[in-house]
Amino acid sequence: MIDGVGAPHWRDRDGWHIDVRGLGPPQPMLEILALLAAVGDGDVIVHHDREPIFLYPELAERGWRHELVPGDEGEVRLRLSPVAS
């Protein structure tokens, strides 16, 4: 587990995962950014209940891009990757 990340997170074959469902704004953004700062590289899969549009400027500033990918019923899932990769 990574210090400073309060939301459930785990490592899988496709990268780090973080589940921020049920958190009120701006907590999901803070949790995701804390995880990105800790992992530094590689894909991060975000499990959310809405599209985190206000996260996008922060991702751009940090050199990350986002992609909406298929998720479970009622879930918005994003894959975040460093722009260089």
Binding site: R50, D72, G74, V76, R77
Partner: peptide
């Protein structure tokens, strides 16, 4: 798991 489900909660409807 469907693509439609994946886009539930999309910002499209919440964003001008």
């Amino acid at each position: 798991m469907t693509m439609a489900a994946a886009f539930l909660g999309s910002a499209g409807g919440r964003l001008l």
